[in-house]
Design a protein around this nucleic acid. Structure first.
Length: 436
RNA sequence: UCCUCGAUAGCUCAGCGGUAGAGCAUCCGGCUGUUAACCGGAGGGUCGUAGGUUCGAAUCCUACUCGGGGAGCCA
């Protein structure tokens, strides 16, 4: 026996560096199969899953009886020798010498059989232990890392806008009202206006953080709380904005492909569809889109916004995301810059992801003229006092500027090929679901 | 808010007018190479709630509650 020798504490993803060595792994039982005098414990430790073999004739009696006691999600520490073995799906397995039962998990609810979504969401705190959910969370982390990398390397400064705000950014969507001492406040639905202020201070800025919309939306594309990444750039035109977006998103997808191939494969993603995400992205004007949709037999008139099925049909023509640009000014937010040559359309674009994932980015050039912005305030009945600071940005050294917001969960859902955005958040907030 | 589907064992479901079922999970037993292991046995349910029709309701009707999918709105 090797009791006198100290095991090397390591993790499953490092196990290939320890062939034939005596190691210690700390984790949980993922599943177990037994065959009388031999037990196969599938151990997970957060970095991976490995098969640990306990042979009755090779270990002390109490070690074998411990291996009989442990069940799914029991916490255990395993000491054993790393063996190369083609019978194991990882290619390696642990020949167990000692097994410490840290704690048990009686009647663990999330079994490896099928479960309904209601049950899984009620047990989200346990559901995230499964390989598929872990892979999604890994990809989400990589998406955020890739976004920071790209922006940091391209002269952007991260600025964090407030979560508690005195006013609405868009004026259209439903907000969460909260008590802010003696006055009313709202949870942010976008940091954009603050990012415009920051862009005038730093040139190029971005934010990443949660936003909240109290809309009674219940579809595979909606969360009540979701993350947005919002870059805002001084002296950027509408064209500059689109060029940045396609370069940014392509870089993000390619970095995720490079670092998360294992996870994407586990999720069953078609990697070729992601490899196709390279600039330039197709660009379609709103005018063209309406004509095209009418030709497809859809009931839409110039001046109306697109519905979800319209967006899906538009996006399905292409193998990469498509920009739909220059929407009617009237259906878009008050701060968007009208096209100087055609004031009835705005210098804005939505980026539609392929495969029916819908709008993942919305961006525009912002109004920088003080008088025009003031007109918009009265047109939209916005209270001048609450937005005085925003108007100030047009008063003191105003410049043309542009920005966009990208929805993190929709982007992750698209990259992972998920059925629903709820799996792209560790603890999704959904309509009528605030638990766990 | 509207449309639509659903609620039966811990989980996933079958049963659709005549005494409540299966697989998995759990517990007991067997198996030295299992891959959602397998084989034998056991325990486990006022069929979402309330009312109605009927000799008789999990099953038919009404209302309510909770949930899924979608629309609108949006990222």
């Amino acid at each position: 026996m090797s009791q006198t020798k100290q095991p090397i504490t390591t993790t499953i993803n490092q196990i290939h560096q320890h062939i034939d060595q005596f190691v210690r792994l700390q984790g949980w039982i993922y599943s177990k199969r037994s065959s009388g005098k031999i037990q196969f414990l599938q151990l997970r430790d957060g970095s991976g899953v490995i098969q640990c073999v306990v042979v009755k004739s090779e270990v002390p009696l109490e070690v074998f009886s411990t291996s009989e006691d442990v069940a799914q999600e029991s916490a255990v520490i395993v000491d054993g020798i790393v063996r190369k073995d083609s019978r194991s799906s990882l290619g390696y397995e642990i020949n167990v010498q000692d097994l410490i039962h840290v704690s048990n998990a009686p009647d663990y609810p999330v079994t490896h059989k099928e479960h309904g979504i209601d049950f899984l969401l009620d047990h989200r705190h346990l559901w995230i232990r499964t390989p598929r959910q872990r892979a999604i969370l890994k990809v989400r982390a990589e998406v955020l890392r890739a976004m920071s990398n790209y922006l940091d390397q391209n002269g952007f400064t991260r600025v964090d806008p407030p979560i508690l705000t005195p006013t609405a950014a868009e004026g259209t969507t439903e907000l969460f009202h909260i008590q802010y001492f003696d006055e009313e406040a709202y949870l942010t639905q976008s940091g954009q206006m603050y990012m415009e202020a920051a862009a005038m201070a730093m040139g190029k800025v971005y934010s990443m953080g949660p936003t909240f919309r109290a809309e009674r939306s219940k579809t595979r594309r909606h969360l009540i709380e979701f993350w947005m990444i919002e870059p805002e750039m001084a002296y950027f035109t509408h064209e500059d904005n689109l060029n940045l977006q396609e370069s940014f998103l392509s870089a993000v997808v390619q970095q995720v492909l490079e670092h998360c191939e294992v996870e994407l494969t586990l999720l069953g993603r078609d990697l070729d569809r992601l490899r196709a995400v390279q600039p330039p992205f197709p660009r379609m004007s709103y005018d063209e889109a309406v004509l095209w949709l009418q030709k497809q037999g859809r009931d839409i008139q110039w001046g109306e916004d697109f519905g979800a099925p319209d967006e899906t049909e538009l996006a399905n023509q292409f193998d990469r995301p498509v920009f739909i640009q220059r929407y009617p000014t009237k259906v878009k937010a008050f701060y968007m810059q009208p096209d100087p040559e055609r004031p009835e359309v705005a210098l804005c674009a939505d980026l539609l992801a392929p495969e029916g994932y819908g709008e993942i980015v919305g961006g525009s050039e912002r109004i920088h003229d003080y008088t025009l912005m003031q007109e918009r305030f009265s047109d939209y009945n916005l209270p001048n006092e609450a937005y005085a600071w925003y108007l100030d940005l047009r008063k003191y050294g105003s410049v043309p500027h542009s920005g966009f917001g990208i929805g993190l969960e929709r982007t992750v859902a698209w990259i992972c090929g998920l059925e629903h955005v709820r799996e792209a958040a560790a603890f999704p907030r959904l309509l009528y679901r605030l638990y766990p």
